[in-house]
Amino acid sequence: MNYILHLLIMIGIYMILSYGLNLVVGFGGLLSLCHAVFYGIGAYACTLLMMKCGLPFLPAILLTILITGICALIVGFPALRFRGDSFVIVTLGFQMIVFTVLYNWVDLTRGPYGIPGIPRPVIAGYEFTTLPEYLIIVWTFLILIAVVLFIIYKSPFGLALKALRDNEMAAEGLGKSPVHLFLYAFVISGMTASVAGGLYATYVTYIDPTSFTLDESIFLLTVLLVGGTGNRIGPFVGTVFMILLPEALRFLGMPDAVAANARQMIYGLTLILLMFFRPQGIAGKYMVR
């Protein structure tokens, strides 16, 4: 039972991440390889605000969103001058840079030692410690964020993003500013990831930089590409598929040492097969360019 609750919590966290990334990848059509950056900044900011500044959970999360939004602005402004391959490479560069900072700024992040003993969220005097309680808080945040994102997906802003994605020159010719619209999308995407980061940190109560590596960014992109981008169902399908797949392997009785590599191999193979047979993802409509 606990095992199932744990899975549901992880699915909740990853759904927040992929719905946010969807705005950039699916609507904006930009392959970003630095989503784990904002996930990580969110986790660290929330942790430090709670532990060093003694803020309660909710104010800490709100401030985390703000801080990560500013970081996303700083990263996005230069990165969004690029398209296609160059955008991928530049976001990858930022991913490597931020990881290096998290890893080596020992005074702030304790670097490779990580931060243990992160307090559980306390809201209105009630502490969320058990798994069912945690499930409730994660899914509440998920629903809130999903509602906000769905409204954005459906809004004129979402349509303008899709227009820019399909043909930037024509969309710009209709008065849409790529600089502004992509930047908004990038910042919103980063902000939502930071919430996932805060939830993750307080859930596992220990964080270190290795949770927010390039591999994690690649994984997040894979989740989205497998599920399908540019709509509401894709991120859900992708997350469920990618989180449950390794668990299925465990049930097949594969030893843990092998399972980790076997799981990764399946991810890799899935990506290749997807590009051959369904480049738009399992439940997607829009095909990656």
Partner: peptide, 29 residues
């Protein structure tokens, strides 16, 4: 021509109808 290929005919025209102000992410809120 440069139409928005993944959008419907309706959405193609709609994308031209929105004002700059309504195309901000906070507009619906």
């Amino acid at each position: 021509v440069r139409v928005f290929e993944n959008l419907t005919v309706f959405e193609n025209v709609a994308s031209a109808c929105y004002s700059e102000r309504s195309e901000t992410p906070w507009f619906p809120f």
